[in-house]
């Protein structure tokens, strides 16, 4: 049976229902641009001071707001993804609309894959586009402000939009793969819990951490969770000496792809998704 059409429409309907998936990143980008616009007041004077530094520091200093914009939008995407996953399979049982969805020829398998694609594909894609557009508008704004002082080119020469976009693209894929088990876990909890999905998602993990700490005075599980959330940075990139990632030579896809944690995480993600599919099949409306 051809599943692409139901999958396509299922993803579209997720976007109809959860408009925050695209509205929130755009709203955050607007705030970022507004903040940046305020910062352009007095920018020519500051830029002259920056140009007195050595070239590496010049670039770092000028690049900062662009990095901040990207980081803020990246975090926005993660937060939307977390809350989306926690609610989606729970919400359709709570409002009984699952009975309607199940009356149509869309299998549980397709429905859950469509939902999983939101944090794993759709949100990274939206984040990518919004970051690129935001950074481009920032460059234009700064150029417009600096041009009268003859400093217009100083931004273009130090903020490398093209290599930034390649780094971003790679980083988003690495992040989605690395976080896949987290989203899988949230979807499974959402398909299972009868109430308080957030507590069910967080408290069991916390309980294991506390138990381990009290029983063995170790924190392996807590470290594992931390590694799961932020570990991709050290595996997918080599950080520069000031913590910046601004050069293509810092990307280490080979290291990333040979990290056991990546593949173990993906196996867990698949397990959680299979559980979510089975739960959606078996659980009744709340």
């Amino acid at each position: 049976m051809n599943e692409t059409r139901p999958l396509y429409w299922s993803v579209r309907r997720e976007l109809w229902e959860n408009r925050s998936i695209y509205i929130a990143p755009v709203a955050v980008a607007a705030v970022v641009l507004f903040g940046f616009a305020i910062s352009t007041i007095g920018m020519p004077q500051r830029r002259r001071a920056v140009l007195l530094l050595d070239p590496a520091h010049q670039r770092a200093a000028i690049q900062v707001p662009y990095d901040v914009a990207a980081m803020v939008l990246l975090m926005t995407g993660i937060i939307i993804g977390i809350f989306y996953c926690l609610d989606t399979l729970y919400g359709e049982r709570r409002d009984r609309s699952i009975l309607f969805w199940k009356s149509l020829p869309v299998s549980d398998h397709t429905a859950v894959i469509a939902k999983a694609s939101i944090p794993l594909v759709i949100l990274p894609a939206i984040t990518f586009i919004v970051v690129i557009v935001t950074q481009f508008v920032m460059v234009l704004m700064s150029t417009a402000v600096l041009a009268p002082s003859g400093l217009g080119a100083t931004t273009w020469s130090r903020v490398h939009l093209l290599s930034n976009s390649v780094i971003l693209f790679y980083g988003l894929i690495a992040l989605a793969l690395w976080h896949a088990p987290m989203y899988g876990w949230l979807l499974a909890v959402s398909a299972w819990a009868k109430r308080a999905t957030f507590l069910w998602a967080v408290l069991p993990l916390l309980a294991v951490c506390i138990l381990e700490k009290l029983a063995f005075n170790t924190q392996l599980f807590a470290n594992m969770l931390g590694y799961r959330f932020m570990g991709h940075l050290k595996r997918a990139f080599v950080a520069g000496k000031d913590g910046h990632i601004d050069s293509l030579s810092q990307l280490t896809p080979g290291t990333f792809l040979t990290t056991p944690g990546l593949w173990i995480g993906l196996i867990f993600a698949a397990g959680f998704l299979i559980a979510a599919i089975r739960l959606r099949r078996n659980r009744e409306p709340i």
């Binding site: 229902e17 359709e92 409002d95 009984r96 609309s97 009975l99 309607f100 009356s103």
Partner: peptide, 10 residues
């Protein structure tokens, strides 16, 4: 199923 199952947001 009954009158309540159409998703309310759609």
């Amino acid at each position: 199923a009954d009158v309540a199952v159409l998703p309310r947001w759609i």
